[in-house]
Design a protein around this nucleic acid. Sequence first.
DNA 1: TATTGTTATACTCTATAACTATA
DNA 2: TATAGTTATAGAGTATAACAATA
Lengths: 164, 164
Amino acid sequence: MIIASAPTATATPEGPGDVAGTGLEAELGWSLHWVSTAYQRAADLVLADLPGGPRGYQLLVAVEDRHPSSQLALARWLIIDKTAMTYLVDELEGAGLVVRRPDPADRRVRQVAATPAGRAELDRRRRALRVAEEQVLGALPRPDALRLRELLVAVARSVGPPGP
Amino acid sequence: MIIASAPTATATPEGPGDVAGTGLEAELGWSLHWVSTAYQRAADLVLADLPGGPRGYQLLVAVEDRHPSSQLALARWLIIDKTAMTYLVDELEGAGLVVRRPDPADRRVRQVAATPAGRAELDRRRRALRVAEEQVLGALPRPDALRLRELLVAVARSVGPPGP
DNA sequence: TATTGTTATACTCTATAACTATA
DNA sequence: TATAGTTATAGAGTATAACAATA
């Protein structure tokens, strides 16, 4: 959970020269919380009926973009437990979106690959998510929205997606 | 959960004139996820030993900044169930950080107020959180960090903290 | 002996429902 | 009858542990 303390009355955006004053101590937590919540709400609507839900989407993206070598590699990338991965792959495989293939070189390993239906589903959801993003950032003028994306990406890079 | 798909190889920050390209569809979810996760990790360290944890902190902030008129008002502001609120207040009251006072005007209602110990604790945690925030944004030059805070606040205001 | 994947179990959070005491 | 607060219960999501197959 993100720390979301209330903004104080004087919490108007400050000029860049300003040091964070006493009313803004928790503002980062507060704003991050609400932006994240809004995005989640929008994304959940888009992904609610996808097998596996948001997790299922993440899995499809990872499978398509990274071709992970095993369920375990996939679990580590998504930072979920290997036991949860079993259930998640079960669900997506049951829906025909992915298939498990035994690795010929190591018969302990199952490779997970998207089916054509899975790829089509992924494309649809990706497009819908892009619309959802625009709704979340809709209050910002476009240059500001792009700037926000840039800055978030810069921070995200520095704080830690697990290395490729 | 925030949708966190992997960035693609070409996901370098784009210039403001650029329309989001095909490699960036899920970038907002991805960056939001990682920034939020980093902040949460840092905040959890600061708040792990506080009674009620992060939730307890949010409650202390709300009690001090907003003086809510009842547990129910507090629960609505923090968007947690009134039943969870009971347990949370129990924990903080047991630790001597808040007290429940019956409202003289309506004996069904319990007002929640911070004790001196609660206020002192809140001040300490607020300062520690401010340090944590700076660590999360540490990779950005200070003007960029301030700009990011501004933009996040602008979006947060538009997407929905419950009105005061 | 170590590792991948599966299954079964337990634990934590949150949500639902039922109850009390006031209004 | 409706509301504030409490308690008890059930559910979802997650983590832990033991197991089978393979290296």
